[in-house]
Design a protein around this nucleic acid. Structure first.
Lengths: 221, 221
DNA sequence: CATATATGGTATTTCGCGATACCAAGTCAA
DNA sequence: TTGACTTGGTATCGCGAAATACCATATATG
């Protein structure tokens, strides 16, 4: 019946170790695409080959399978959000570079899917929520914090709590846009739109929006 | 058997209209608490009284019930995010007031639950996602945009796209904190912490973080 | 080649829950 | 009071999917 689908890549009777890898990979893809509840074991088996038996033998069931891969997925998928920053280069340059890389990482399809997964199923799987935040937004903000603190020590900027400033910088980058994309109300922004957002954020954080820059002491008149 | 639970408030044989109200109220609570999938009709009936029959007679089923209330819930629950701003008062004052009210609205338990609901089930119920965004974050940013444009017209600030600036202001307010609370990684911030965030955001958006305010031309020495 | 072991595939069981049906009990009108 | 109608409560059905069991088939070992 359904075995008619051309048997594309169904390798047969793999040894346990390989089968486990293939299962984990397929499961990652499906869970990310459809979420935990909407994914059935048949979906996974259909993609990975193998049988229910191997899943239960190696992972104990659906929950076990999910728990076995969720940490690894999260850490891998969020790798683009953990780029280290060169603390020595010009602050403005560094902020631009950081903002661009974070922003494009945020709108990566895999990152979006993982974010939706964490938000939807984080309650049932607390580890997912923890790992997601720690290895994504959390660590992104940490490296920015270090950048800001370096600049502060050089006297270039003033911020009482650089960690708060860093977190707000990332928040400003996310904008309402990230929310809209998560909600599937609009597609992810292309390069051009992202660049506009980055410029706006960096400009604001460096100079503020007051026209009177400070327009300070000298009453020029 | 289970009828032993003290029959607290189970009013019996209500007329259709009243029963419908009670059902909607109970359903709102449960859906917000547990999400769509995790809510069973028995949960709702257990809280509202009445019977399956009334649900199917009036709403056609679980989906119908959800659709019937989701728009109204969203609009009501998000009302605190739609406060109008006085465009005439001092900009700094206005931003402070706006930021505080938005921030405390964001961390309202009901708003948090609704946000989780929209993010988790927005894919299955597109209306939910649309209404959530439009009557919450969307309209909040709109009123801020008008405030900024008024200030821009008075020459107080410069921003090419005040709508983007407004959106980034709200994003900065959300910080990583909102994400952490949504993920249940930490409790909502109290008044004190919120005030610190508000101060930081307003300060940054007005003046930026550079120490050299402009520290401009004069090479003092 | 034959037997043991492990894996693939499918059938069967179990369970939760939405949907439906049915009966009892209460409400309303004449 | 009586009879038609509405609502409450429970029992039943159907479906989807996880969990389990069973048989067939492939690989390994002697």
């Amino acid at each position: 019946m359904k075995t008619s689908l051309s048997e594309s890549k169904k390798k047969k009777n793999l040894p346990a170790a390989q089968r486990q890898e293939v299962l984990l990979k397929a499961a990652s893809e499906v869970f990310l695409e459809k979420g935990y509840a909407a994914t059935s074991l048949d979906d996974i088996i259909g993609r990975a080959g193998g049988s229910r038996r191997s899943i239960y033998a190696q992972f104990g069931g659906k929950e076990g399978l999910f728990n076995a891969l969720v940490t690894k997925i999260a850490s891998q998928a969020l790798a683009p959000m953990r780029q280290e920053i060169d603390k020595e280069t010009d602050l403005r340059e560094a902020l631009f570079a950081y903002a661009e890389s974070i922003l494009s990482a945020l709108f990566t399809p895999t990152v979006l899917d993982l974010s939706r997964l964490a938000l939807a199923d984080g309650a049932r799987f607390p580890d997912l929520a923890k790992v997601y935040f720690a290895s994504g937004p959390g660590s992104a903000v940490e490296s920015l914090t270090r950048l800001l603190e370096a600049a502060k020590n050089r006297g270039e900027i003033q911020c009482l709590r650089c960690d708060i400033t860093a977190s707000q910088f990332v928040g400003a980058l996310r904008d309402n846009l990230y929310l809209q994309v998560l909600l599937r109300l609009r597609p992810a922004p292309e390069q051009e739109e992202r660049a506009a957002l980055v410029t706006s954020v960096v400009e604001i954080f460096l100079h503020g929006i007051l026209t009177a820059r400070p327009k300070p002491q000298p009453m020029v008149m």
